[in-house]
Design a protein around this nucleic acid. Structure first.
Length: 430
DNA sequence: CCTCCACAGGAAGCGCAGGAGT
DNA sequence: ACTCCTGCGCTTCCTGTGGAGG
């Protein structure tokens, strides 16, 4: 990507030849001359697996020990990994998998390591399908019954004589919407099979996840357990320093900037991914600015950009009715009702629907949409009891009104709604 | 102390789309 | 062509609930 862009830029630059009105030429010349902050952009990507994981040596060693029997082709214990987001669960698993794969390749062992993110895969069917694909069994993305995919997986494992070590990342997402049936079936897939089978690693950022599991599944899945604690600010500094050393030109990112990123992320539950994102965006801001050194103001700017990016992302990808719910929320906030309750939002939403001639959804559905927006981090909803006046949710935007409005203005349909204040709002205004 | 509000949120089911197998 | 399967977005129906006001 990087090299492709710069090659194209160079070509255009040369073809400019002896001057003339070329609006792009100046931009391209500046792009080439621009002081480069990045040395290797990939290092700052979220799926990058570093060669060293500061402050996680102990976890790496434990996981390695647990999985070691796989190399002599006996099924290792299942593992359960707990820890909040950005505490290095995924990084450690990926790192250990990477190192094991190197050995597998060298020794030519019938051993496969699969990594599946259950929240992204979403359904039991897709998780099964991914397991199948990891051992080279083709399955259509829909059309088969789950039982059929399951038996293909079992058959595949037997016929190929493969030992599969699968990591189910964010396994709680799957269990919360589908129950633990699939896990139970998978834990029994080994029965009657020797020299092949399935070992499971589950990760969850919900510490109470255990409560959702059937005792049989729990005992099978958590033969071993690992707990990851959030990083402290000093640990985050080490992580960022290590990454920065690889990702940036020497001297481009001062220690003070790294410390600031670490401090900001540490304030939000020690999330390393957040910290790395923040530093990356700050560096991009600086580079786009033509600066050769990342400064504190770039970090501050990056923080608000990340915030705005989340709203923009949400607004551009959300389905129509979720957008309309957000529009209702914004209209309420703009007109002196910053923390409306569900009922107010629903009424406003209905009026908004009426204005553009869209059939409104039921209140139940809208309630679910609000929950989704909550999970996306676009709004915040708090359960409140108002005694006689019932029990409801108080909902507020997590992003400043002006920023949401700015993003909404760019959407033709939504922008047209903002000019008109729904009548019902009057009665709630104080 | 009891009532009853205004919803939350679970469960079930419906209709549709996309696809496999026969 | 027909049956069977799942996912998805949605509705309908339902039970649950903390505390202000009677």
């Amino acid at each position: 990507m990087e090299s492709k862009n710069s090659k194209r830029a160079e070509g255009a630059f040369q073809s400019k030849g002896g001057g003339g009105a070329d609006p792009l030429g100046e931009v391209l010349r500046r792009a080439l001359q621009r002081p480069r902050i990045f040395r290797d952009r990939n290092v700052m990507r979220s799926d990058y697996v570093p060669d060293r994981l500061p402050h996680r040596d102990e976890h790496i060693r434990r996981l390695g020990e647990i999985l070691a029997p796989a190399l002599s082709l006996s099924k290792p214990s299942n593992v359960f990994i707990y820890g909040k987001t950005g505490t290095g669960k995924t990084a450690v698993v990926r790192y250990v998998f990477k190192r094991f794969r190197e050995v597998v390749e060298r020794e030519n062992l019938p051993l496969v390591f699969a990594y599946i993110n259950c929240r992204i895969s979403g359904t039991e069917y897709r998780v099964l399908a991914e397991l199948c694909e990891s051992i080279g069994v083709k399955v259509p993305f829909t059309g088969l019954s789950k039982a059929e995919v399951f038996s293909r997986l079992r058959r595949g494992l037997r016929e190929k004589g493969v030992l599969l070590v699968a990591c189910f990342d964010e396994i709680d997402a799957l269990v919360k919407s589908y129950g633990d049936n699939l896990l139970y079936e998978l834990s029994r897939i080994n029965e009657g099979a020797e020299e092949c089978g399935l070992a499971m690693i589950g990760t969850s950022n919900d510490l109470h996840f255990k409560d959702y599991l059937d005792p049989r599944v729990l005992s099978s899945l958590s033969e071993e357990e690992l707990v990851f604690h959030p990083y402290t600010a000093t640990e985050l500094i080490d992580i960022l320093t290590e990454r920065a050393r690889l990702a940036f030109r020497e001297g481009a990112v001062p220690q003070a900037v790294i410390n600031l990123c670490a401090a900001l992320a540490a304030a939000e539950h020690g999330d390393a991914r957040r910290a790395i994102d923040l530093l990356r965006v700050a560096a991009e801001v600086a580079e786009r600015n033509g600066d050769s050194i990342v400064e504190e103001r770039h970090v501050r700017l990056a923080q608000s950009m990340i915030e705005r990016g989340r709203v923009f992302e949400a607004l551009s990808t959300l389905p129509l009715h979720s957008k309309l719910v957000l529009a209702a929320l914004l209209l309420l906030a703009k007109n002196g009702v910053p923390n409306p309750i569900s009922g107010m939002i629903y009424q406003t939403y209905r009026e908004v629907c009426g204005r553009i001639g869209v059939e409104p959804l039921t209140d139940r559905r809208v309630s679910s949409l609000i929950s989704e927006l909550d999970m996306l981090g676009v709004v915040k909803s708090d359960l409140v009891n108002m005694g006689r006046r019932g029990r409801t949710r108080k909902i507020s935007l997590l992003t400043p009104v002006e920023e949401v409005e700015e993003v909404m203005e760019s959407d033709e349909l939504l922008a047209s709604l903002l000019s008109h204040t729904p009548a019902s709002i009057d009665k709630w205004r104080k």
